[in-house]
Computed example of a mutant assay.
Amino acid sequence: MCSCLFRLLQLFSTCVAFSLVADMGIRRGAIGNWSMSFWCVCFVVTLIISIIDVCELWSRFRYFWCNFSITYACYATLICLSASIIYSVTYVQFLPYGPYRDRAIAATAFSCIASVFYALDVALMRNCYDFDDVTCYAHTMPGLLKVLETFMAGVIFTFLSYTSLYLDRPALEWCVAVYSICFVPAALAIVLNLGKWQRRLPGPFPLFQLVLSLLSVLLYVSALVLWALYQFNEEFGGQLQRSSDMGCISGLTYNLCFWDRKLTVAILTAANLLVYMADMVYWARQVSVGTRGQSNAPDPFHSQEVSLQSSVSP
C-alpha cells in the first residue's frame, strides 16, 4: 500500500522523539511528560493501524476505515505540531546549553517531521484506498472544522488539569462546563459521520448541526468573557500582570506557571470560538440553500452514498 512508507516514517519519528525525551529522566519535567505521552500514543495507534492495513483486516468495513484513518491522521498532525510548539516555547528555550538541550531540540525536530508525514498522509491516503466516488468526512470543510473543535477542546482540558485554576469559583467552573458541553456534540458529529449514522436522526442533519453550532457559539462567548474577567481583572480576583504570579518569575520550573496556563486557555477559547463561528456560518448557508427549493438535491455529506447507489443500480 502506498501509505506504508509514510507510516514507517511516522513510527520512526515519534519513536525517536519519545526516546530522546524519556532519556532525559527527571529533567524532562511536566511538559516533557505531556509531550512524551502524546508521541507515545501516536506511535501506538499508528502501529495498530499499520498492522490492520498490512493484514487487510479493514476489507469488511472499508468505508469506515478510510474515514477513521484519515481522521486519525488529522488529529496526529495537530498533536505532533502542538507538542512541538508547546515543548519548544515553554521548555526547550529555558534549558541551559548542553546535552539535555540538544536532546530536547532533536526531539522537537523529529516531532515536527512526524507532523509533516501525518499531514502528507491526510492528503494522499484517499488515493491509497482507491475511493474515487467517496468523499471522506475529514476531507470536507465541516469535517475539518469538527476535528479542530474537538482538538482545541482537548488541549484546553490538558491545561485545565490543575483544578486550582477554577475550583470554588462558580464563573470559572461554568467555563469548564462549557468546554465539556460543546465537546460532546462535536465528537458525536464525527462519530455519526464516520459510521454513516447521521440519517438516523429524527430531523434534518444540517438543521441539527446549525442548532448545535449556534448554541456552542453562545456558550463559548460566555466562557471567553467570564474567563477573561475572573482570571485577568483584578476587580474579580484575577491577575493582570504576569509578574504578579510568583511561579512565573523563577525561570525554569519544569512546568507552566498558573498565569501562563490561564492565558493559554483564553487564547484557545478565542480560537475555538472562531472555529465554531465558521462552522455556524457553513451550516446556516446549507440550511438556507435547502429552504430555497433545493431540498431534492443530494446533501453534500451524503453525495458519496448517492453515487454508490447509482453505480450499483441497473
Rank of each mutant, 00 (worst) to 15 (best):
L5Y: 08
L5N: 12
Q10V: 15
L11K: 03
L11Y: 04
L11P: 12
L20C: 01
M24N: 04
G29P: 06
I31F: 07
N33E: 15
V45L: 15
S50K: 05
V54N: 02
C55G: 03
L57A: 14
F61D: 07
R62G: 01
Y63D: 09
F64N: 15
I70A: 06
C80P: 00
S82V: 10
A83Y: 00
I86D: 04
Q93K: 04
F94S: 08
Y97N: 14
D102W: 05
A107Y: 03
F110H: 11
A114C: 06
A114R: 04
F117I: 00
L120Q: 02
D121F: 03
V122N: 05
A123P: 00
A138M: 02
H139D: 10
P142A: 04
T150D: 01
T150G: 04
G154C: 11
F159Q: 04
L160E: 07
S161C: 11
Y162T: 05
L165C: 09
A171E: 15
L172A: 08
E173P: 05
V176S: 06
F183R: 00
V184N: 08
V191I: 15
R200E: 03
R200I: 01
L201W: 10
V211I: 15
Y220E: 12
S222V: 14
A223C: 09
L224D: 15
L226H: 08
F232V: 06
E234M: 08
E235A: 07
F236L: 07
D245K: 05
M246Q: 10
I249F: 12
T253F: 02
N255C: 10
C257A: 14
D260A: 10
D260K: 10
K262C: 09
I267T: 10
L273C: 05
D279S: 13
Q286F: 02
V287W: 07
V289A: 13
G290H: 09
T291A: 13
Q294E: 10
F301V: 08
S310L: 15
S310K: 13
